[in-house]
Design a binder for these strands. Sequence first.
DNA 1: GATAGTTTCATACAACTGTTTGAATTGCAA
DNA 2: TTGCAATTCAAACAGTTGTATGAAACTATC
Lengths: 220, 220
Amino acid sequence: MASDHTRSAILAAAERLYADRGFGDVTLRDIVAEANVNLAAVNYHFGSKDELIAELFVTRSIATNRERLRELKAAEEAGGGRAPIEVILRALVGPTLRGCLGPENQRSTAARFMIRASIESVPPIRRIKNREIDHLRKFAGAMRRALPDRNEVDIYWGLNFALAMAHHTIRESERLTKLSDGQCDLDDVEDVVARVVSVATMALTAGRTESKASSKVAAR
Amino acid sequence: MASDHTRSAILAAAERLYADRGFGDVTLRDIVAEANVNLAAVNYHFGSKDELIAELFVTRSIATNRERLRELKAAEEAGGGRAPIEVILRALVGPTLRGCLGPENQRSTAARFMIRASIESVPPIRRIKNREIDHLRKFAGAMRRALPDRNEVDIYWGLNFALAMAHHTIRESERLTKLSDGQCDLDDVEDVVARVVSVATMALTAGRTESKASSKVAAR
DNA sequence: GATAGTTTCATACAACTGTTTGAATTGCAA
DNA sequence: TTGCAATTCAAACAGTTGTATGAAACTATC
């Protein structure tokens, strides 16, 4: 059993502080002060600081991955084992974008925490991200089924670029807002999703064997 | 005057260590040991650890930015004030990609350092990156001239996506290699550049007013 | 070769870090 | 209540960090 109260108070406080101030300058003492618990409680309940961070990140990231797979599975079942590429890409980048973007004032601590996690990259989080490959393979498989004529290398590049646009937009959302003088509306998440999906789809469906020769425009 | 020897020994050692082991666990003592100089030398020559990191990053990053602008200017002059969008994008992402990618065994310390700087994000480097907006505005301007019919918001999104693909590919090059079982050849830098430019160009030139309505495929 | 300025050096400093300890307290079962 | 385990707590620990100091060594100028 156990009261669990201390445990979840620490989790909540840590998430809030990391979200606001980053991993770099938040100490265990900051966390326990915010949570109104004793310093030793962190090590008692989580083992170490890194395991606390890992638990925070894992919780949020399996939630996102589950949603991703749910959408993917639903799409493939609806299409008899083969889903349109746009829908696959939407399942890939949608949950991540929805989990991190949206109106700033109503942005959850979880969302702000995940943004931090994608900007700063501390060891415990990096370790978890490295295990994400198997998850991505499932999407690569679905994409291959959706575009059987496409060669495998192009599939991987398309997957890479889709993730690139989503993650970079999250990481650099502030800069994009500033650069565009607020014209790019990062709060309209569905529009962002649509843009990413649209470009990634084009990348994956434009003229065959786009690899070397044909696209080498204007070589210097 | 001054011998400068110590100064540059520190710079070289720091760049090497940061490149290999990241900013997180390289201390001043590691650096001075590698450089065979006294501990106090860092503060004497650079003022602080952060200023040392900043100097390293600034040096490399103004080199890249200068090359970018050189290519941009050359292209616009050759086209009488208006360059093809592909060439502008190539000037934007080419120097960065060429500076970080390429055959791993012959990759310079500078390149490996810049990869680190794009993965981990320490305060002194973040501060410098934030001042990069003026530089990007020049590219936004050139892109607007190249695509006068395109609305401004789409230009910014295209710029954002181009940078996204370049930076993400650098940051996650290892993962892409692993995911594709080595099929994606990150050593062929010009192919990578061509792919990024090709996709970004499509993003910027595909069907007008691609914003909301038309691209909202398969809304959930 | 004395002098003034620069650079190096060993060492100390002061602060902060995550973690551990062992005793106190609490909660629950018998 | 008694007993036992789970939890909390204050305090200390051991280590590391970047930085400061003041004397020593060097370098070049006159």
